[in-house]
Each structure stands twice: as structure tokens, then as C-alpha cells.
Design a protein around this nucleic acid. Structure first.
Lengths: 269, 269
DNA sequence: GGAATAACTTGATGATTATCAATCAAATGG
DNA sequence: CCATTTGATTGATAATCATCAAGTTATTCC
């Protein structure tokens, strides 16, 4: 295990796969990537993998480093971000149970994003070499990886289109309406991540996000802290102008570590 | 053949695959996607495919339509673009020999981008159903598709990082320096596409591109029409600040229809 | 619980970028 | 070849967005 090269990881608990609990194996098995693959393939991956618990605010991947592991978030929350000359932007936030940086592992190429824990997290690390061997030997696994990567690509295309075709206010409105739709059209929900991450993901400053959110009250959407309430759906929808080509539904975005988590539903009282 | 549904395609010459010339088959065969796949797989795809010649300015794909075909540009030039409420942005420009919209074909999902010819073009259409069947039956083909899609995803991640981490001027400088690097560090070259397309691809208006290009003369890069001359490499490099994580090299971008074409080299006299 | 930290908000200001309008240059099509 | 169209440039202006500098609220951690 070469984790300690990374410097700022301490207190880690790495263990052979025989210690990956069944509960976790079941969760991982349910991921699209592993669906219907041969049991022997899956077991060999589990056996080769490392299960580590990390505190909050630990950098587990630095962009540019060789992609030695496919990562799977089992507990907690991980931010994927990118940096350049001092600036930093959020590229995705990953919640359980999801893989991330599949593409780098498959291509045996350097990571294009960095990753840090936003909470105490439990991460399963599958060595990329084992992953590639498994993909080469199990054609169902190869098909799954192919489908997943095609989906990742399409999610990123959507994200790029959003950035280029909509301005700040439009991006926010569309995002909020998509969140509502993910909950079956719920009028109220809570934002899944801090606003600073949301702002960075959507390509704007926290200040502008704050102002824009406030201004949306006049268009049928009220925000109070983390809570969002769509007060005038018709009005808000006409503002947001959702379109299937920009706004999905996107079946892959959930599990593949390419966007933000789904919203948090209201408690039914 | 259902092409005529598309409305604005006329004068097309669709033909059975027995008429796809060997020269073209050889070019297609050389694409990474088809490398080392079984001859029977390749031949069945060629037999199922349509070879069409299209005039300039023909829309061959509309976003939202089902992805009935994988496209391969054999001659000419094709623009991939996206639209939303009246606005339109260039997502890629594809030159021979390259595939495009592989992800939609593989996923059997709607196209996320539209496509139109920028010149008189020759396009090979491979029915997506045949493509998926071939991928399912030929594991080498599946591996190639998987690798290609991983590369497409990574190219799009790079593009998104560029949009979010750099301002207009920085994006332009980095782009020009990348172009130079593609020609082995050539000081002079020509832009591969019209500036309006370049501007839109990089997420800015033609006016701003024009102004920024002019201003770069003071930083070591002179632009005259389509011609670019890096006059002070050291100075220009320190401005552009290329980084491997944003600027590649990106081995996939070439053949997969996810970015702009390479620059045009100077004639050696 | 209360201090300390971090996140969020708000206002003022400035930089960046888009839009509009006009001109100029280049390419296209009879 | 010339007329027409399309693309590129330039200047003036406006909109958008970022930055800076407070404040305020919320969270975290003894």
C-alpha cells in the first residue's frame, strides 16, 4: 500500500479485502458498474482492494498523480476539484455509494482532478491494474464500464452546455428545478452541499450565488438557509426553461461521481 | 434509410456497404476504435453502413433525436453545436478521419449535440444497433470503445476546467500555445477553423476573441488573419502558463470528435 | 455554553465580458 | 469579374460578474 506517499493521509486503516464487510460488498455490488459481472471477477476485485477510513478534510488524490486506484465512496462525502495557478474549482461532490475517477483508472492516465473528504469518509480503493485486468477478462464488466463512461461523458457535455448556454441566474434556476424534479416535483427540499461548493460547481462566486438566490424569490422560489421552497411553480418553470438536452434526466450522474448529490427531501410529518 | 425525415438533407447518395471504397475502409480501419477488431466485425459494420456525400451547411443531426447512427467524417468538416432558447455554441469541429457522437450511439440515447457540415463532406453512417451488436460480440471492440469513451470524457473534463479556471485571454493564449506544441513547437501556423467557431468553442464572443488576439501582440504572439506567429516564445509561455492537467497532451482529442482540429502547419519553402 | 472558526450575506466598486452598430475584408456565386 | 454575402474588426455602451470589505449567521470545538 503506497498511501503514505501522499503525505497528508494519516490515521488510515488499510486492510486486506477479506475484511471488507459483507454489507459494504453488497452496496458496491449493486452499483451499475458491477452489475451482472462474474462473481469471481467481483471477488478478485474485493480481495485486491483496500478499505480506508479517513477524517474530514483529507486530500486523497492530487491531480497529475498516476491513477493507481479506482475509488468508491462507501460512507461520507468527497469533493472532486481542479486547480490552476492558485485558483480552485469544484468539479463534483460524491456521496455513497459511488465510484469516482473511473476514466483515469481505465486509461492508466494521470488524475485530472484532485479529491478531498468533506466529512469523515470510508473509501474503497481498487487498484487500477486489477480493474483493468478484470475488465479485460470479463466482457460484461467491460460493457458496464463502457456504458458508464459513455454516461460520464454525456453528463460532462451537459455540464459544459450549461456553463456556455446559460448565465448565472439561469443556471441556478435550472439547477433548483432539476433538484425538485429528482424528488418527483417536490416543492420543498434542502440543498445537498454547502453553497460555496454549489457556486463553484456552477462556475460562479459565492457572493453571486447568494444574490441570485435572493432575487429568485421574486420569480417563485424562496431560499432560506439550506432550505428551498418553490412558491410559484408555473412562474419559476417559465423562468428556468428546462430542456431535456441540458437538464436530463441523466441516469448516470448519480453513481459515477460526475456531478453533485441529489437534494435532501423534506421530512414528512 | 430514414435520412429524409431530417428535412433539410437532400442530394444525398446513400449506398449499401459493398460500395464503400476500399480506400475509405482502410482509413476507417486505422481509427483507434477499430484497431485489432475481428475482420468479420469490421466487415459487418461496413456492410451495414451508409456512405453519404453532403453539401455544405447541411444539418445532419439535431440534438434530442434518437442516436440512430455513429457518424464518421471521411471528407470535409463537420461542426458539433448545441442550442438553447435561441443561443447556439460550438462544441467541437470534426475533420477526417474521425468518429463523432459515439457515446449517444453506445448508450442508445438522444444526441446531446447537433451537427452540420461546414464544407461539402462525406460521412459514413453506421447504424447504432449494429454498432452495439458488434461491441457486444467482439470484446476487443468493446475495449476500444471503452478506452475511447474514457478519453472523450477526459477531454471534456479538460475543456470544462479550461472554461472555469481561465479567463478569456488566458484561454486564448493557452489554446495558441497548445496548437504550437501540436506542431512540435512551431512558431508559425494557421488557425484550423474560422474565428467565430474558435470563439464559440472557447466560450466567448467573436468580438472579444478579436480584441484579445490583438492584445496578445504585446505578449509575444502576433495574429494576421488566420496566420499565427509566436514572436517571443518565452514571454508568451510565461503568460499562457500551460499545465499538463489542463492542456494535455491529450491523445484522444484528435480522432474522437471532441475538440477542434489541429492547426495547419506552415509550408516549408 | 461560549469562544473561535467558517460560511454566508450585503453593499460598494471595478473588471470582465457581451451587445450593438458600423466599417472593413474576404469569400462566394452568378 | 463584380455583386452579394459572410466573417472579422473596431468603438461605444451596457450588462454581467468578480473582488473587496464589512457584517451576520451558523458551526465547531473545547
Amino acid at each position: 500500500m503506497i498511501i503514505n506517499q501522499m503525505g497528508d493521509i494519516s490515521n488510515l486503516e488499510s486492510e486486506g479485502s477479506d475484511t471488507v464487510p459483507n454489507r459494504i460488498q453488497d452496496d458496491v455490488r449493486a452499483l451499475y458498474l458491477f452489475r451482472d459481472i462474474a462473481e469471481v471477477t467481483f471477488q478478485s476485485l474485493m480481495r485486491a482492494s483496500y478499505d480506508q477510513s479517513l477524517p474530514q478534510q483529507v486530500t486523497l488524490i492530487r491531480e497529475g498523480a498516476p491513477a493507481d486506484f479506482l475509488h468508491i465512496v462507501v460512507e461520507g462525502m468527497v469533493e472532486l476539484f481542479a486547480t490552476s495557478s492558485g485558483r480552485e474549482v469544484t468539479m463534483a461532490v460524491v456521496r455513497p455509494v459511488s465510484t469516482f475517477i473511473l476514466a483515469a483508472s481505465i486509461r492508466d492516465a494521470p488524475y485530472l482532478m484532485s479529491a478531498r473528504t468533506l466529512q469523515r469518509s470510508r473509501i474503497l480503493l481498487i487498484p487500477s491494474a486489477d480493474l483493468r485486468a478484470a475488465v479485460a477478462s470479463d466482457s460484461q464488466f467491460a460493457m458496464n464500464a463502457m456504458q458508464e463512461l459513455a454516461g460520464c461523458y454525456r453528463s460532462m457535455v451537459r455540464h459544459t452546455k450549461n456553463l456556455k448556454l446559460r448565465n448565472t441566474r439561469e443556471r441556478i434556476a435550472a439547477y433548483l428545478l432539476r433538484q425538485s424534479r429528482l424528488l418527483g416535483g417536490a416543492a420543498g427540499f434542502s440543498l445537498p452541499v454547502e453553497k460555496r461548493l454549489l457556486a463553484s460547481y456552477m462556475g460562479m462566486t459565492p457572493e453571486n450565488l447568494s444574490r441570485a438566490l435572493k432575487s429568485l424569490a421574486a420569480d417563485g422560489c424562496k431560499i432560506d438557509g439550506q432550505r428551498v421552497i418553490i412558491t410559484d411553480r408555473a412562474r419559476f418553470e417559465s423562468l428556468a426553461e428546462l430542456s431535456p438536452m441540458l437538464d436530463g434526466p441523466d441516469p448516470v450522474a448519480e453513481q459515477a461521481g460526475v456531478s453533485l448529490p441529489p437534494p435532501i427531501a423534506e421530512l414528512q410529518i
